[in-house]
Amino acid sequence: MQNLELKPAVDKYQPLVLTPLEDIRGFLFHHLGRFLLFLITFSSVLLMLLIFFFVIREAIPFLMKFNLTEFLTTKSWYPEASTPKFGALSLIVGSLYVTIAALVFAVPTGILAAIFLSDIVSLKIGDFIKPVIEILAAIPSVAYGFFAVLVLAPWMQNKLGFTTGTNALNASIILSIMALPTIISVAEDSISTIGRELREASYALGATRFETIFKVVIPAAHSGIIAAIVLGMMRAIGETMVVWMASGNANQIPSPWWDLSQSVRTMTATIAGDMGETPKDSLHYGALFAIGVVLLVMTFLLNIISEYFLASAKRKSGKS
C-alpha cells in the first residue's frame, strides 16, 4: 500500500477578505470596464447621429438657397436647366405610389400566408415553407431588379401590350415580393403569440376557423399586423435598385391615378441615378441630399410607428 499524501488543492492560501487596495482595484476595473463597453455600444447612437448630421449638413446649402415649401410642393424637377428647378413632389408621390401599390399586392398575400403558417398547417409543414420565405428575403435587390428588367419588362411589353415594360406596375410587383418576407414573419410572430385560450374559447362557442381567425385572432393581433405592414412599407419605400431599374424613371405623377402602366420616378432612384453626374457643392448635389433627408425623416417616422405597435403587441401578449 502506498502512503497517500494529501496535497492542498491550492498552493498558496489566500485570505478571503480582500485588501483595501485589491478592493479598490476590482471596483475600478469593474466600473471602468463597464463604462468602456458602454462607450463602444454607444457607437450605434453615435453613428445614427452622424448619419443625420452629415446627410443634413450636405443638404443645408441647398435648403438655404432654395425654398423648402417649393421643394416639397412643386412638380418640376429640372436640376440641370439654366434656371434649375427642384420640385420633388412628383418624386415623393412616385415613391409613395409604388410603395402603396406594392402593399396592395403584398398585404393580403402576406397576412394569408402568415395565417396559413400559424393556424392552418402543422409546424412540420411550416418548416418546409419557411425556407421559401427565407430565400425570398435573401435574394439581393439587384437580382430582383435584374429579373424585373430582363424578364418581367419584355414580357409586359410583348405579351400584355404595355407601351413600356419598365413601369409602376413592374416595380410594385417586385417590391411586393421583396416586402412579403418581412410582412409574413412579423405578422406570423404576432398571430402565433395570441394564446390558445382565445382560439379555444372561440371554437367552444361553435365558431368556424374562419370566424375564429377573423373575429378573434386578428383583432387580438392587430398591433403586430400593423407593425408588419409598416415594416413592409419601410422596406419598399427605401428600396433603390429595383425601382431604379424597373420603374422607368419618368418624372411624372400618373394620371389617371390608377394607371399603373405608366412610368414613375422615386426618390431613391433619383438619388442613385443623378448622384454620379453632379459635381460636389452644386445645387443639384445639395438637392439630392435634401431628398435623402426627406427619405430619412420618412423612415424615421415609420420606424417610430412600428416600434409603438410592436411594443403594444408585446404588452398585450404579456398580459394574456
Partner: peptide
C-alpha cells in the same frame, strides 16, 4: 439604423 434606406447609407 436598421430601417435607414440603403441609398441613404450611400449618401
Amino acid at each position: 439604423l436598421a430601417g435607414v434606406p440603403s441609398i441613404v447609407f450611400g449618401l
